[in-house]
């Protein structure tokens, strides 16, 4: 069978589908001061997975606000700098109007994902931390 670390090189999703892969990628991103990219990506996935039924409205609103405050609002943050202004306005609008939709972070997540696929992920695959691991 293919060792996991070779699978990690197939695609970003293969990497993010494996606990050890996530851990190593996060360590790399921490060195580059951009671990928030990964945390935000997972926060968006987690938010989308919340079922309207098994989670109170207040909790979803509180979580949406927390994600917005931590990653989108701070214009100096790495995540905020990589999200398009229109996408940020859309999220801000959803939070202010309290129109909390499971898909409200989808576009922002896609933008961060594209950025990781084009940038941090290929750099990770050539990094010492990955090469030493393999």
């Amino acid at each position: 069978p293919t060792p996991p670390y070779l699978k990690w090189a197939e695609s970003l999703h293969s990497l993010l589908d494996d606990q050890d892969g996530i851990h190593l990628f996060r360590t790399f991103l921490q060195q580059e001061n951009c671990a928030d990219l990964l945390d935000f990506w997972f926060a968006c996935s987690g938010f989308r997975k919340l079922e309207p039924n098994d989670s109170k409205v207040e909790k979803r609103l509180k979580l949406a606000k927390a994600i917005y405050k931590k990653y989108v609002l701070d214009s100096n943050g790495i995540v905020s700098r990589q999200i398009k202004p229109a996408t940020k306005s859309f999220i801000k609008d959803c939070v202010l109007r309290q129109q909390i939709d499971p898909a409200m972070f989808d576009q922002a997540q896609m933008e961060i994902q594209s950025m990781m696929e084009d940038n941090t992920y290929p750099v990770f695959l050539k990094s010492d931390i990955y090469l030493e691991y393999t």
Binding site: D18, Q19, I22, A43, G46, F47, K62
Partner: peptide, 20 residues
Amino acid sequence: IDSEDDLLQECISSAMPKKR
């Protein structure tokens, strides 16, 4: 009452893959 950070952390963890 959960703090915002706890809520965020719980959300991030819920999206991570389970152990192989």
